[in-house]
Design a protein around this nucleic acid. Structure first.
Length: 460
RNA sequence: GGCGCUUUGGCCGAGCGGUAAGGCACGGGACUGCAAAUCCCUGAAGGGCGGUUCGACUCCGCCAGGCGCCUCCA
C-alpha cells in the first residue's frame, strides 16, 4: 500500500509483505484536561489504519504516549492541589474510556514520560556528548545549527524560523533562537522534578517521543503519525533529536499527519466556545455515527463537524443498520447466483484498493453503498444474504469499526405484542389507534414495515 | 510576513488527461387504510482568466475565495 509522506510530499510504498510487522508511533495527548473531538479524529484514523493492516495480514505494532510531565499539567495540578501525575492519570483514564466508547482498539503500548526518565536522561547525556546539545543554567538545549537538515519536514528554512516570534519565554542562555529545551531546570514553582547530571529538572516536550518510540519501537519507524498541528515544531524537533541521537537517518520512513477538525458555524457548545469534550461526546453522540462522519473524509484534509454533517452521517448509518437488519428477514430460498458473487468480489477488491491508496476511506465507503443498491434486500435469497452480511462484517465492522448494533433498548417481545396489537386495530379499521401505536414504537427507534408477507419491524 | 492545503450538484464527498463514484436531502412511480419503511426511476456539479494538449475537472501559471500551521495544541 502507499501512504502520503509529509516530508517528501509524495506517496511512498509501505515496503512490507504479509506477515511483516508494521511499527509506527502516533503522538498521543497531554492529559491535563478531558480529551476532545480533535483527539478522536486522529485516534479514529489510526485505528482504521491498524485494523486495515491487520486485515491485510500485517502485524501492526502501534505505539503511543501520554505526556504526563508538562507545563500545563503542573499548572493545573497546582490549581487543583493534586499531584501532577494523579491529574495526568485521571485524564488518561478518561481517554481510555472515550476510546472504549468509540470502539477504538488498544494500541500495542502507551508510553509515559514519567516511566522513561532514565532513558530520557541517557538520551540527553548522549546528545551532549555528541555535541548536539549544550548545558546552561536553565536547562539543556538542542543545538539546531548542528543539524543541517533541520526544517525539511515542515518546509521551513533558518530565516523563517528565526523570524518567528517565540511564544515561550525566551531564554538568555540560548545560543540560537531556534534551539529548544530538551531538559528544563527545576523552577521554584515546579511541583515535580527528577535528579539529573545537570541538576533537578524535567524533560522538554519533544524528547519524550523520541525516547519512547526508540525504546518501544524500531529504528527507523515504519511510520510516525500525529495531528498536522504537530508538524512544527514538535515533529521537526523530534526528528532532529532522534537522528542526532542515533547517528543515522531516517527516524521515520513515512510521516503521516491527520487534518484538523473544525467545528461548524452552528455553535454546538456555548460557554466553552467550540470545545466538544469526552463527556459531551459520550452523552450525545453515537460512536458509529462519529466514526462514519470522521472517516468519510480523506484523513489529511480538515473535516468540519456540524449539526448538519452529523445529521447526514446519522441518516446514513441508520440506513446501513436497517439494511443489515433486513438481511435477516430474507426467507427466499435459492442457490447463490453468479452475479451476486461477482458484485461482492468486485466491491471487495475495490474496497481494499481504495484503502491501499493512502487510506481513501470515502472511496471505500462508496463500495459498501454499491452493495446496498446493487444487492437490494428484496432481490437476494437467504444464502446470498449471508454472504452480504460477511462483507458488511468485514468492511464496516472490522475495518471501519462500526458496531452496527441497534440503538433501541426496547424489549423484543414487548415490540412484538405492540405490533400484533396494531395489526388487530388495523383489521378493525381503527386506524387512528393503530397509528398511535406505530408512533409510540417509532419514538423508541422501532421502524415498522408493512409488506405483503405481513408486518416486520426493525430496531434502529 | 513565512510554509502549506483547498475551491466538485441543495448539502457532504471521491476517482479520473477523453465529458464526473457514493451518501444525505429533493422529485416521480409501485406498494399502503393513510403513512412510514422498502423497491424502481429521475434530475442536478468541478471559483475566474489564460497556457500546454487532438482533448483538462484532472497538468502549469495568474487572480479571487476558504482553511490550517508558524515553538500550548491530535
Amino acid at each position: 500500500m502507499r501512504l502520503y509522506d509529509t516530508e517528501s510530499r509524495r506517496l511512498i510504498e509501505l515496503d512490507k509483505k504479509p506477515g511483516d510487522s508494521v511499527v509506527g508511533y502516533v503522538c498521543g495527548i497531554t492529559p491535563y484536561d478531558e480529551p476532545h473531538l480533535g483527539h478522536v479524529r486522529t485516534a479514529l484514523v489510526f485505528d482504521l489504519f491498524q485494523r486495515f493492516l491487520q486485515s491485510m495480514g500485517y502485524k501492526p505494532v502501534f505505539i503511543s504516549n501520554f505526556t504526563d510531565v508538562d507545563d500545563k499539567i503542573i499548572e493545573r495540578s497546582k490549581a487543583l492541589s493534586v499531584h501532577p501525575l494523579a491529574l495526568a492519570e485521571t485524564y488518561e483514564r478518561a481517554y481510555y474510556r472515550l476510546m472504549d466508547y468509540l470502539n477504538v482498539k488498544p494500541l500495542y503500548i502507551y508510553g509515559r514520560v514519567s516511566q522513561v526518565m532514565p532513558d530520557i536522561i541517557d538520551a540527553v547525556e548522549k546528545l551532549i556528548q555528541r555535541d548536539y546539545a549544550y548545558v546552561t543554567p536553565d536547562g539543556v538545549y538542542f543545538s539546531v545549527g548542528k543539524f543541517p537538515d533541520y526544517g525539511i519536514l515542515s518546509g521551513r528554512n533558518a530565516e523563517d524560523i528565526s523570524q518567528m516570534e517565540a511564544r515561550i519565554e525566551p531564554s538568555p542562555y540560548k545560543q540560537d533562537s531556534r534551539d529548544f529545551a530538551i531538559w528544563k531546570a527545576r523552577k521554584p514553582s515546579d511541583n515535580i522534578w527528577w535528579d539529573s547530571p545537570w541538576g533537578d529538572g524535567r524533560p522538554g516536550w519533544h524528547i519524550e517521543c523520541s525516547v519512547i518510540s526508540i525504546k518501544f519501537g524500531t529504528y527507523p519507524l515504519d511510520f510516525h503519525g500525529g495531528g498536522a498541528d504537530l508538524i512544527f515544531p514538535h515533529h521537526e524537533n523530534e526528528r532532529a533529536q532522534s537522528e542526532a541521537l542515533m547517528g543515522e537517518k531516517p527516524f521515520a520512513k513515512i510521516w503521516m499527519h491527520t487534518g484538523m477538525l473544525r467545528i461548524g458555524q452552528e455553535e454546538m457548545h456555548k460557554s466553552l466556545g467550540n470545545f466538544i469534550g469526552a463527556q459531551e461526546i459520550m452523552e450525545q453522540y453515537d460512536p458509529d455515527v462519529l466514526r462514519y462522519l470522521l472517516l468519510s473524509t480523506y484523513y489529511r484534509d480538515a473535516v468540519t463537524f456540524s449539526a448538519e454533517s452529523y445529521a447526514q452521517a446519522d441518516a446514513t448509518v441508520k440506513n446501513i443498520r436497517a439494511y443489515k437488519e433486513r438481511l435477516n428477514w430474507i426467507t427466499t430460498e435459492g442457490e447463490i447466483r453468479d452475479f451476486v458473487v461477482n458484485v461482492l468480489e468486485e466491491v471487495k477488491k475495490d474496497f481494499t484498493s481504495y484503502l491501499e491508496e493512502d487510506l481513501n476511506t470515502a472511496g471505500a465507503l462508496s463500495c459498501v453503498h454499491r452493495v446496498m443498491s446493487q444487492l437490494s434486500t428484496d432481490q437476494v435469497n437467504r444464502k446470498e444474504a449471508s454472504l452480504i452480511r460477511d462483507f458488511l462484517a468485514f468492511s464496516m465492522e472490522d475495518i471501519f469499526g462500526l458496531r452496527l448494533l441497534p440503538e433501541s433498548q426496547f424489549d423484543d417481545s414487548l415490540v412484538q405484542d405492540l405490533v400484533d396489537l396494531r395489526n388487530e386495530l388495523r383489521k378493525e379499521k381503527k386506524f387512528l389507534e393503530a397509528d398511535s401505536v406505530r408512533n409510540l414504537l417509532s419514538k423508541h427507534g422501532i421502524t415498522i414495515e408493512d409488506t405483503k408477507n405481513g408486518t416486520r419491524w426493525i430496531k434502529e
